[in-house]
Computed example of a mutant assay.
Amino acid sequence: MNESDEVWPTALPSCLHIERQGPIAVLILNRPAKRNALSDELVLGLQSFFSSIPSDVKGIVLHGAGDNFCAGLDLNELKDTGVAESFEKARIGQRLNDLVQFCKVPVIAVLHGAVIGGGLELAAAAHVRVAETNAYYALPEGTRGIFLGSGGSVRLPRLIGASTVIEMMLTGRVYGAEEGHHLLRLSHYLTEPGAGVAKALELAQKIAGNAPLANFAIIQAIPRISEQDPNGGLFTEMLMAGIAQGDEEAKLRLRDFLERKMDKVVRK
């Protein structure tokens, strides 16, 4: 039994490593010699992880072992793939990133080194992205004769615009961390090399302190509302506001806030 087996209810492959930091699960892509490329084993292991999150986990920090976050699909497994097999790989990859985006708790990705192809698709599915200044982004699919297959053609245009995605895929252009942060807005936070995990854990602990139902509503509803027509979105918003505000913990938090505010007024 490895350490991951002791902190997670489901057995996972050695290409994944899990650590617990209180209510936060730290998930590490553990193929550093392959730049954490997404093998079939790794993708299926990630699916198993995101399908078996214990109730005491309030947030997830995702990062890569070694010098890279993820260099995309393992091309050694892709080179002899036929059309039917390609469909199946795409289906599995799309299911994984759906599990990440619609995870029951917030997912924070720490991006460093290569964030390429399928690695960028995985990062785009996370809710918060912390990039280190040594991160770099690319979508070299066009130069390799392949296409995005894990939901990136849906998520990435919404993040950085369809024109940028097309240009990146056609030319293989590489964007550095500064460009990715300031120009493309791929990351929400930018840190020095080696500081990303600490920043992500700080954010995860803060987010874990929110009302759980509010966190769930935010990560589940907003992506769906953004896809709806305005009237449908407003109706969904109304429903989610009622559900979140009707939660007993939310009521306690609001009363506590108002009482503390009143105490300050009285003291003045």
Rank of each mutant, 00 (worst) to 15 (best):
L16C: 08
E178I: 11
A217N: 06
P230W: 06
R253C: 01
D74C: 01
M169I: 13
I28H: 05
E227W: 15
K206R: 05
R91C: 06
M1C: 13
L120R: 01
I28V: 14
D67Q: 14
M1V: 12
A71G: 00
F50W: 08
S163P: 09
G72H: 00
A177I: 00
K261V: 07
G82K: 10
A37D: 00
E85H: 06
P9C: 07
S52D: 02
I28Q: 11
L139H: 05
R158L: 09
R35N: 07
I225L: 03
P54L: 07
A25M: 13
A244T: 13
L44C: 15
L29D: 02
L156Q: 03
T164C: 11
A214Y: 15
G145Y: 08
D74P: 00
L148T: 09
R255I: 06
I222Q: 13
C103Q: 03
E132T: 09
L252A: 03
V130D: 04
I225W: 02
A37K: 00
I108N: 02
E179C: 10
R91Q: 09
M1T: 13
A244H: 01
R253E: 01
L38Q: 05
A71Y: 00
G66V: 14
G22T: 13
N30V: 05
G209Y: 06
T164Y: 12
I146W: 01
A25P: 14
S14A: 14
N30E: 14
I225H: 02
S48H: 12
V115D: 01
L16A: 07
H181D: 09
R267F: 10
T143E: 11
P54G: 06
L96P: 04
E179H: 14
D80W: 08
N2I: 11
H127K: 02
A208S: 15
R144W: 00
A71I: 00
P223R: 05
E121P: 02
D74N: 06
G242S: 00
Q101K: 04
R91N: 09
I166A: 04
N134E: 15
